[in-house]
Simulated assay, not measured.
Amino acid sequence: MNRERPGGRAVYEIGHPVVLAHRGGLAELPENSREAFDRMVDLGVGVLETDVRHTLDGYPVLAHDETLSRLYGDPRNVSSVPWDELSEMRDTDGAAPMLLRDLLESYPRLVVNIDAKTDEVVAPLLRDVREAGATRRVCLTAFSARRVATMARVTQEKAMIGVGMADVARLLAWTHLPGRAAVLASVGRYAGSPRAIQVPLTFRGIPVVTAKFVDAAHSAGHVVHVWTVNDPAEMHRLLDLGIDGIVTDVPTLATRVWAERGLAPA
């Protein structure tokens, strides 16, 4: 199964840790903005982690929040505003909203890790990815394991696929069972298919990212990414554990950590 970028390297690889800029690096520049993405390119950060919702007329847009309140001072849901109206808005930093298709077309060398926030956005999201010829440079994921399974089925896993939080809970439990590697390989009902396991440091108060967890995931062929990490000492600790990437609000800081260890950030 080919999930390689146009240049020939896999989207994610065990033992090749990457920096995933959280919404472009929201602690440094306006989130999900061209300014942030241009800065990523300048830094050599090749992986963007972002979220997608749909407008009233069905356009997938880069948006984390359900409503426009935090960024635009508008109490309405993203899904209740048509794109022609949303496109005229500017956030608290003066940045314009962006369509997913514009991101994929404007930054053809970026790997885009996409969190599909609703069931309704899945079909237009997959259409935009397909029409941009970007299937092999995206990772498709969601908090909903059912939504992840849908995206895996529709794309026939030609794209990299993540796992839902229900799968994370199972993975955490299975880590401590005999034969855990075989069980981990069947995550998401797609046996033997490598996944991007993207997890927080803790889940419901339980430590997730342990050496045992990382080793079990790797033995099943899965990569492990950790969110959201902004402290350089913690980045070093996680890299020592063998994780394959971190999601961070401070990509400039993360690239310094990578450089200290002689690593490329993408």
Score class of each variant (00 low, 15 high):
Met1Tyr: 15
Asn2Ala: 14
Glu4Pro: 02
Gly8Met: 10
Ala21Trp: 05
Glu28Thr: 00
Glu28Leu: 01
Glu28His: 01
Pro30Ser: 09
Glu31Gln: 15
Glu31Thr: 11
Asn32His: 14
Ala36Asn: 09
Phe37Ser: 00
Val45Trp: 01
Val47Ser: 10
Val47Gly: 07
Leu48Ile: 02
Glu49His: 11
Asp51Cys: 04
Asp51Ser: 08
Leu56Asp: 07
Asp57Thr: 06
Asp57Asn: 12
Tyr59Gln: 08
Leu62Tyr: 07
Asp65Gly: 15
Asp84Asn: 07
Glu85Val: 14
Thr92Lys: 15
Thr92Leu: 15
Asp93Val: 00
Pro97Glu: 13
Met98Cys: 06
Arg109Cys: 00
Asn113Ser: 10
Ile114Gly: 02
Asp115Lys: 05
Asp115Ala: 06
Ala116Leu: 08
Thr118Arg: 02
Glu120Trp: 03
Asp128His: 09
Ala134Pro: 03
Cys139Glu: 07
Arg147Ile: 03
Ala149Leu: 06
Glu157Pro: 01
Ala159Leu: 02
Ala166Asn: 03
Ala169Tyr: 10
Leu172Trp: 05
Leu172Pro: 01
Leu172Gln: 09
Trp174Tyr: 11
Trp174Ser: 04
Thr175Tyr: 00
Thr175Trp: 00
Thr175Glu: 13
Ala181Trp: 03
Ala182Cys: 10
Val187Asn: 04
Arg189Cys: 09
Gly192Leu: 09
Gln198Lys: 05
Gln198Tyr: 02
Val199Pro: 09
Pro200His: 13
Leu201His: 01
Arg204Gln: 14
Gly205Thr: 04
Ala211Glu: 13
Lys212Glu: 09
Ala220Gln: 04
Ala220Trp: 01
His222Ile: 02
Trp227Asn: 14
Val229Arg: 10
Asn230Tyr: 08
Glu234Thr: 13
His236Pro: 06
Leu238Lys: 01
Leu238Gly: 01
Leu238Arg: 01
Leu239Trp: 09
Gly242Cys: 04
Ile243Ala: 07
Val247Glu: 09
Val250Gln: 11
Pro251Ser: 12
Thr252Cys: 05
Leu253Gln: 09
Arg256Tyr: 04
Glu260Met: 02
Arg261Asp: 04
Gly262Val: 04
Gly262Ser: 06
